[in-house]
Design a protein around this nucleic acid. Structure first.
Length: 555
RNA sequence: GCGCCUGUAGCUCAGCUGGAUAGAGCAACGGACUUCUAAUCCGUGGGCCGAGAGUUCGAAUCCCUCCAGGCGCACCA
């Protein structure tokens, strides 16, 4: 609908220019917005205000000229008006709005899907926690944002792949193996000293116990400690990664691909890439270490890729990783990071540009950190110290739907205090139930109709003009705008817009429900309202699906 | 010190890439179940949009300067 209005205005402007009523001004786009107050119409444009200064005319005068040259070929406009400083307001005919119900009925679960993506391949990489411990509440936020951005882009016509990058090659993993080995010795009666760099969580002891159960004490006498640590690392990493995957699955997040950092080192992949960058002049040696010239692309200093001790840095592997992503044919890659990594951005952008990729082909979404509280007092979170609230605990105590919605009600860059006690107390008043309840109510109405032997009407059979209550009109317009909401959310990568839309739609429905009977003595009115309610159910379901939140039929 | 994010009702947050009279939810108060589900609805109160200056027809939104909080500033990941 919005696009129709835009093209109407475009055509009118062209005619005006041809008739030399207005000078030819190159507008990058026509802004059409939905006014806040209904008396300002369904859509409004400010083009006249924009054109005022270049054409040196009164904006209201310009609006009049445009208005006079509008050609409403499809006869969708009830009226237009000029208001305020020079807005041109459009009122769409009620009948045209009502026809959108037919669309919803016809497209059902596909209603809302659009094709701005044109099947382009996009990759979204998120969570990517190294498997040194269970996922905690901070990871949960990133997981939901990544998952829903994927759903949004899919709904918008992109071909999207979800990927988890397993950082299984660095120091942290080595510390994990060391930690398990120490606990292993401890469990077998040795006295140990536990260094600060090691992981203290109880799960470490459990894993050590597993190894004892499985293989006894044979590693006590092993001579090559390095080899033992390597083995313990991979043993523990595998167990922890399994747990992570299970937690994520119960959180509704399933990845298409798990990519191991180690794989990048196969066939000297990282070294070869650095060699080729050296030839291009982006990598240089100072005799001891190898540097990447990120300052060539606006980073504040150059970065080390091969350390003095000969080991490649995380950054070196990451360049190789992103090169790998592009080589798999993704046109756009989206990385979702915790905001504490923001300082790393210029480096990575420099990296991909050195590889010859456009800066805009990489998008980095920063998800602000979650500040964990318990009854108002901050709880320090540290995987290393074993102090954290796990995703598993949140899932068990708050539930998947409520937990997901809790994160989705906020912009990604808003700082978030997560009070576990408060969250538990608020389980029953979480906005998610407000929306789900609307869906359940609708199912209940439709069931009641069936029980009374009323067959569900089809659009072709109803008298749409009976849907004339103010709330009915609002509901229809809201539903008609659902595809525009998806478009906006997908373009800006802002999942929270869907949650706010859902709250609004559910709110108007609840209000309507309390004021009007759907099933009544009046058969034709009942039919019309049943169809309306049925389509609301479809939109609620489709939107909830994008958020990965269930739509129960009973509550 | 430098960089990024944030600052909107008592609390939690929206505000559609500069629009018309700044909005929800929670909390407070007062109402509505003989009804298709009261996990709902209706009503009331509540604001110097952190502060100051600027850009223009028009600013919560853009520029600059401060203030406050968070996070970064590795040959860690």
């Amino acid at each position: 609908m919005k696009n129709k209005i835009i093209s109407l205005i475009k055509k009118a402007l062209q005619t005006c220019v041809q008739k030399e009523l207005l000078p030819a001004v190159n507008l990058s786009y026509i802004e059409v917005e939905i006014p806040g107050t209904p008396s300002h119409g369904d859509y409004a444009t400010n083009v006249a205000l924009i054109l005022a200064s270049p054409s040196q005319q009164n904006p209201r005068k310009i609006a009049e000229i445009i208005q006079a040259n509008l050609i409403d070929a499809e006869k969708i406009i009830e009226k237009t008006q000029i208001a305020g400083p020079g807005f041109l307001n459009f009122f769409i005919k009620d009948d045209i709005w009502r026809k959108s119900l037919q669309n919803i009925e016809k497209q059902k679960e596909k209603y809302g899907l659009i094709n701005i993506g044109g099947g382009k391949k996009v990759q979204v990489e998120f969570v990517s926690a190294n498997p040194t411990g269970p996922l905690h509440i901070g990871h949960a936020r990133g997981a939901v944002v990544g998952d829903v951005i994927t759903n949004l882009l899919t709904a918008a016509g992109y071909k999207v792949s979800k990927e988890y990058y397993i950082n299984d090659a660095g120091n942290q993993m080595n510390n994990l193996g060391k930690s398990v080995l120490l606990r292993y010795r401890e469990l077998l009666g040795e006295k140990i000293e536990f260094p600060e760099t090691c992981y203290r969580g109880d799960y470490i002891k459990e894993i050590a116990g597993d190894i004892i159960k499985k293989e006894g004490n044979k590693y006590l006498t092993a001579i090559k400690e390095e080899e033992t640590i390597r083995y313990f690392t991979s043993f523990a990493g595998r167990i922890i990664l399994d747990e992570i995957m299970k937690d994520l699955m119960d959180f509704g997040v399933i990845f298409d691909e798990y990519f191991s950092e180690k794989k990048l080192y196969d066939n000297n992949g990282v070294t070869k890439l650095l060699e080729s960058l050296k030839k291009k002049g982006f990598v240089y040696s100072d005799g001891e270490t190898l540097w990447f010239k990120t300052t060539a692309f606006d980073d504040e200093k150059d970065r080390v890729v091969i350390r003095k001790n000969g080991e490649p840095t995380y950054f070196a592997a990451d360049i190789a990783y992103h090169q790998n992503k592009f080589s798999r044919g993704f046109e756009t890659i989206i990385d979702i990071w915790g905001a504490d990594h923001h300082g790393y951005m210029p480096r990575l952008f420099a990296g991909i540009q050195a590889l010859g990729h456009d800066k805009n082909s990489l998008k980095i979404i920063l998800v602000q950190l979650v500040n964990l509280l318990r009854d108002g007092t901050p709880v320090a979170m540290s995987t290393r110290l074993g102090e954290f609230v796990t995703l598993r605990e949140v899932l068990d105590e708050v539930g998947k739907d409520a937990a997901r919605y809790n994160f989705l009600m906020r912009r990604s860059d808003s700082h978030l205090d997560f009070d576990l006690e408060l969250a538990k107390r608020q389980v029953s008043e979480n906005p998610v139930y407000y929306v789900q309840y609307a869906h359940a109510r609708i199912c209940s109405i439709l069931n009641m109709a069936r029980e009374r032997g009323i067959s569900l009407p089809r659009y072709a059979d109803i008298e749409t003009a009976l849907l004339n209550e103010p709330e009915e009109k609002v509901l229809i317009k809201l539903m008609a705008r659902f595809p525009e909401i998806i478009e906006g959310a997908a373009k800006t990568l802002e999942p929270h817009r869907i949650a706010f839309y859902l709250n609004e739609l559910a709110g108007v429905f609840h209000s309507y429900y309390n004021r009007n009977k759907v099933i009544s003595e009046n058969g034709t009115l009942t039919a019309a309202r049943l169809l309306l309610v049925k389509t609301i159910g479809i939109v609620l379901l489709n939107a909830l699906k994008i958020l990965g939140v269930s739509a129960p039929e009973k509550m």
